[in-house]
Amino acid sequence: MKFSVTVTLKKDVLDPQGKVVQNTLQNIGMDSLKSIRQGKYFEIEINDNEETAAKKKVDNMCKKLLANLIIEDYKINKI
């Protein structure tokens, strides 16, 4: 079973890389652009056929290592 995990900086944490990407896109004419937050993406395969249990394992991975919950949020999706 496969999941995707997206880790991004929390809303109140400054994301200077996202800001630079945003400014650059605006500079090359992407005028309706409102905001950009940069993050990290993981694809995780789990040897488990039961979705709830597998997702719980991925959630634990996020909490233990993949995200630093002081500064980051994460989202898990089945893929």
Binding site: L9, V13, L14, P16, Q17, V20, N68, I70, I71
Partner: peptide, 17 residues
């Protein structure tokens, strides 16, 4: 030390990148 939780808070990317 912040990643272990022995010290609270975190060290982010320098503001000027």
């Amino acid at each position: 030390l912040t990643e272990t939780g022995l010290l609270k808070g975190a060290l982010l990317r320098n503001k000027n990148l």
